[in-house]
Design a protein around this nucleic acid. Structure first.
Lengths: 149, 149
DNA sequence: GAAATTTATTTCAAGTATAAAATATTTAAG
DNA sequence: CTTAAATATTTTATACTTGAAATAAATTTC
């Protein structure tokens, strides 16, 4: 028995499924961050990146890590600074650059967000046993090298 | 041999991988829609939904299908109407409602977008044979029921 | 070492996105 | 019928996002 359907159809279905799944999870995370912490996913992403870099990151490094535009990061950082979650630090030797890092309060706040976040993901993806999750991650990893920016 | 790492870590890694993969593909699609068609992903999504409903959709049906807010759809439709891709049609019997549907030009334009879109996905996901893609889709499907809005 | 180029960041214009408030209309209740 | 409640949509305020232009500072070139 031959299958008349081209592979492209299966790939298209996979893409639509991938999109639906990730958008669904994202929507749930957004909602919970908003309701339970008056926060947002972009703020969470920025703080997570800064958490992994105690010493701080330049604005351009941050936008590189998060793969978003410079101007975008400027705006999010502005609001995080207003809320005393993040502080700007001058870079000695280069007056064009600024480093940003979490404040003490920012670290404390993020720890709470991160704990809740991990629990939410654990709940939303509980259909996957650890082995299945690892296998799926590996499968998805293979796409990575395909995507060029 | 026991594994000290809790399942939640595997699930978190899966989520981060899922997010990275879909954002990567989305970024590529956005870029190509912009460069090759001066269009955007939200416009594509709206037009795709309208293509599947020849007779048109109410604004609220459209936001339901796309899972985005009413106000959001209002804005996207406004711009599509300006470009003569979409037209508003009065709903007889209910003066509150409006149906929107693709114009003839909108259908012609969307056909080009859709063809390019499918080819891009086929290229970006070529690492997956049809069977692998179908299997992955099925795996991801299991998450669906977990996500509540 | 002054001029040209590159680099780091912000500003800007336009589009996307949400939740909440406002409008307009229809339906239900009394 | 007339008020109250529900429904469909738009408007508003705020945040996020991008690419491109502007600004400022550092580096390279002649």
């Amino acid at each position: 028995m031959v299958n008349a359907e081209p592979d492209s159809k299966s790939r298209l279905r996979l893409w639509l499924r991938l999109l639906k799944t990730s958008r669904g999870i994202e929507a749930t995370l957004r909602e919970r961050l908003r309701v339970e912490f008056s926060s947002t996913l972009p703020r969470f992403d920025v703080m997570a990146a800064l958490m992994r870099h105690e010493e701080g990151l330049r604005m351009s490094e941050l936008s590189g890590v998060l793969k978003v535009s410079n101007g975008n990061v400027t705006g999010i950082i502005e609001r995080l600074v207003e809320d005393d979650m993040v502080e700007r630090v001058a870079v000695k030797g280069d007056r064009r650059a600024t480093k940003v890092r979490l404040t003490k309060g920012g670290k404390i706040h993020f720890a709470k967000l991160a704990e809740a976040h991990e629990a939410w993901i654990d709940e939303l993806l509980n259909a996957f046993a650890a082995e299945d999750a690892d296998y799926l991650s590996a499968q998805l990893q293979t796409v990575e090298d395909q995507t060029y920016d």
